[in-house]
Simulated scan of single mutants.
Amino acid sequence: MTNAQLVESAGLFGKDYSTGKQGYNLAAVVLLGKDEVIRSLCPTYKTDALVRQHDTNRHDDRLVATTNLIDAYAQIAGFCRKHLPDRFLMEGDFALSPRDTIVRELVVNCLIHREFTSPFPAKVIIDNEGIRTENASRASFEGPLEPDTFSPLPKNPLIASFFVHIGLAEELGSGTRELFKNSRLYTGRDPELEEGLIFRAFVPTVPAAETVHSPLGQHTTRADEPDEAVALALKLAESAEGVRTADLANTGISRRTALRIISELVEQGKLAPQGNGRSRVYRRCPR
């Protein structure tokens, strides 16, 4: 097949039935286009990669990717691998790199499942706690994602299909399961994924048994769960209204902590999600 036939078979060249004209679509432009063409069609498109480990107010290192998605993936993935430790791990007779899988899944998700018309800039941030991403999304619901209960929906199917065919992605939903699996291998901890108009993902890089040193000199560990917040979540879940992530966040704890508490209570079988979108709440499971 020629290059033109390959592009057409990928759904990147087609006909606009409203005008009758044929040409490349937006997916083709952001996947393979030149920077100036992408900038003319998506002027707010960029991915900002930052390292904030010493200078937490600004950054220690930075990469701004404004090129097409294929080149942007290579740039951002290389940037993340440079700043994250690659811990040695054996599975049978083979050496594995959970770090590389985590980087691939986070960066690919941030690039292909985003809302390209939104002015919200996509971010990849590496700090002293882990690596996190933020990108605009077209969400079917708001709240934390659990690997065994969520129903994946394609945001940009042509772009996702292209990444599948070049080996950087797999079937829809498998990336979330891979992220949970490799996060547990990497640190013994689960990632935190929050769906919404802004999709947020966080993968910890500090092992569960290690102490985290905060900028204020405080020392916390994975075992130091906010017991009061857990008790409050369970109490609210027994009410007729149930509990939402926002209910815990309104009490003064961070939204990330609230997400983690609810996700862990769901995993432990103490809470069950009900409803979708903004109406999703969590109720206490029968004892």
Rank of each mutant, 00 (worst) to 15 (best):
L32H: 10
T117I: 03
Y186D: 02
P152R: 07
L145R: 08
Y45S: 13
G130K: 02
Y45H: 13
G143M: 04
D60Y: 04
T221S: 08
A169F: 05
E241P: 14
M90R: 14
K235N: 11
L193I: 01
R177W: 05
S151A: 13
Q268L: 05
I126Q: 07
G277T: 11
L31P: 10
N135Y: 03
A231F: 06
G33T: 10
L179D: 00
A49C: 15
F116A: 07
D148A: 11
E194W: 00
F116K: 06
V124R: 00
Q75E: 15
R87Q: 12
G269Y: 02
G130V: 02
E225F: 03
T66V: 14
D60F: 05
A4R: 11
V64A: 12
F180M: 09
L248M: 13
R177I: 14
V29R: 01
L106D: 01
I261T: 03
G23H: 05
G217K: 12
D86P: 02
V281Y: 06
A208E: 11
R87W: 11
D93C: 13
R260S: 01
L41W: 10
L89F: 10
E178W: 10
I253E: 07
R284N: 08
L265S: 08
T19F: 06
V243F: 06
A209G: 13
E178Q: 14
A122R: 02
S140N: 13
A249H: 09
H113G: 08
G269H: 04
K155F: 00
E129T: 04
A209Y: 06
R52D: 02
S183E: 00
A28V: 07
T66I: 11
L168Q: 11
T56M: 14
Y186M: 00
L234Q: 11
V51P: 15
G167T: 12
I262L: 02
Y17K: 10
S9I: 08
R280I: 05
L69Q: 06
V243S: 08
A208N: 04
G14F: 04
D148W: 02
N57R: 12
L31T: 07
E238F: 01
S97K: 13
V7Y: 09
G11W: 09
F79L: 14
T101L: 01
N128D: 13
L158D: 04
L145S: 06
S254N: 06
F163H: 07
S18Y: 08
Q75L: 15
Q22S: 12
T211Y: 03
L84K: 14
L6W: 09
P144D: 00
I198N: 02
V7F: 10
F13Q: 10
I131G: 01
